[in-house]
């Protein structure tokens, strides 16, 4: 006997993500999902982003890692509310994890919620969490060919951050090829070369974030 299902594979995740979105909208919170490999500088980019915009917006952060509180301690040390999600073996964040984490925040006092997804260029992209926008960070040492090797994550990005540009001379990183492949995969996404730890390019990146937050929150 045939049973018609007719449902998206990630139906349950997507429905919960919509609930997250509604809850965040009700509190006027903009959520940015940050996707990248391990070691690309997600946490330092988050810290630099907050530093640049904290006079204008109140931030909160959700940190996703398989284990440890290493990252959330860095965020809390900067005086920012942060919830650490330890996924155990799961290689990406799912919308129910975000729903649980949101319970720990005072939502009325947050303007921008930055979600640091688990370091992974594959699985994280499938799971909508309820975010308003996605940023993918690639760091120079990972190589300019990553968009060609992992196209989906770059295709779904609203912005691409190229981190660690301060060491570009020490690596065989061809920025022209990097931009050429991105323009094939996702021509609409702006690219922001930055050095999160040196502060290079942070103004342009946070200017974009500021503008999209204003546009979304109206």
């Amino acid at each position: 006997m045939q049973l018609d299902i007719g449902k998206p594979i990630l139906d349950k995740n997507d429905r919960l993500a919509e609930e997250n979105r509604e809850l965040l909208d009700a509190h006027g919170i903009f959520m940015l999902n940050i996707l990248a490999s391990p070691g690309s500088g997600k946490t330092s980019t988050i810290l630099a982003t907050i530093e640049a915009l904290r006079s204008k917006y109140s931030f909160a952060v959700i940190e996703g890692d398989l284990a440890s509180k290493v990252d959330s301690e860095k965020i809390k040390a900067a005086g920012i509310p942060c919830v650490q999600i330890n996924t155990g073996g799961i290689c990406h964040l799912e919308s129910n994890m975000i729903a649980n984490a949101l319970k720990a925040f005072d939502l009325d006092s947050i303007d921008i919620l930055l979600v640091e997804n688990v370091g992974n260029l594959v699985c994280t992209t499938d799971f909508y969490l309820g975010e308003n926008a996605r940023a993918v960070i690639l760091s120079v040492p990972e190589g300019h060919d990553k968009p060609v090797k992992y196209p989906i994550i770059f295709q779904e990005a609203d912005a691409v951050v190229l981190n660690k540009v301060d060491v570009i001379d020490y690596f065989d990183f061809n920025e022209r090829e990097f931009r050429a492949s991105l323009s094939q995969i996702n021509p609409a996404a702006p690219i922001f070369p930055i050095s999160a730890t040196k502060g290079t390019g942070i103004k342009a990146w946070t200017g974009w974030l500021d503008s999209i937050v204003i546009e979304t929150r109206g």
């Binding site: 006997m1 045939q2 049973l3 018609d4 299902i5 007719g6 449902k7 998206p8 594979i9």
Partner: peptide, 11 residues
Amino acid sequence: EMYIDSIEVDI
């Protein structure tokens, strides 16, 4: 697309 269309089952 990422859809579950249908399933065939034995009752």
